[in-house]
Design a protein around this nucleic acid. Structure first.
Lengths: 144, 144
DNA sequence: CAGCATCCGTGCGGATACTG
DNA sequence: CAGTATCCGCACGGATGCTG
């Protein structure tokens, strides 16, 4: 079926595989159980998840260490986001019964597998950043 | 510097390149001008941008066609998201002076370059979905 | 130290009605 | 057809204070 479209009015233009996936998600009414863009990206796409995962890419970190790494995060959001990442199985939480207690967070095996596609996206973002900025400038100047 | 850490307490565990980028962003206080996670991912990470980009991966679509492809999007959000994507230079908007007028949206060259890293992320999400679900079930069962 | 509880403002995004 | 305008609920997320 790949490369086997029979006629030219409909269009395998840019990324046929993504288009086929999209058609499937649509047939499932974008039910998060079948649409990864809805189920996964919504969670990881929040304000802090990606930055925390990247912060943990260098190795395990304690709660307060993470708080220092993210200068402008509140304890509330750090806790909440870590809980979400733990629930999804991306990070593991280990409590040390010291006094006062300390808690260490580390990437799980599953979480580590996210680093590769995430790094690709980050590299794309860095490469594209100049083009995006100039596009924004042009758009705003045109009175968009 | 790669692989050249001198001692064992600090740790190039998972993804050193991401960790190095993170240190740079941090030194810039995560200013969106230097941190792509903040500047780019925040925009594309909203509720509809990724789905619209994927919908356009199959080829140009008119406004109402897009609205049909995304069953539960409002005209308001479709317009607003398309404007954002156009402002960033990811999609191009062409108006045909028919009566009534029709407007076509297509991926720009820049927008097309996003499809590859995006497809990687989607494939990861699909692969990981079962593991995520079971992790969530375990977490919730444990009384998290 | 590592949270949890509470209060609260803002903005994202939905619903509806109107226009060129 | 392809929007714009307006209203509004609600969830995300920040600030502060308290606890084991």
């Amino acid at each position: 079926m790949r490369q086997g479209n029979s006629e030219g009015t409909e269009l395998p233009a840019g990324r046929p595989d993504l288009a086929e996936r999209f058609a499937y998600w649509q047939s499932q009414l974008f039910d998060p159980a079948h649409c990864p863009v809805r189920s996964v990206l919504d969670q990881v796409g929040d304000k802090w998840s990606m930055l925390i995962l990247i912060a943990l890419a260098a190795g395990p970190r304690r709660f307060s260490a993470l708080a220092r790494l993210l200068p402008d995060i509140s304890k509330r959001m750090l806790t909440q986001t870590l809980r979400g990442l733990e629930r999804d199985g991306f990070v593991e939480r280990e409590v040390f019964a010291t006094k006062p207690p300390s808690v260490e967070y580390r990437l799980s095996d599953l979480g580590s597998t996210l680093l590769d596609p995430l790094a690709q996206l980050v590299r794309w973002a860095e490469r594209s950043h100049p083009a995006i900025r100039s596009a924004q400038t042009r758009f705003d100047a045109a009175g968009g």
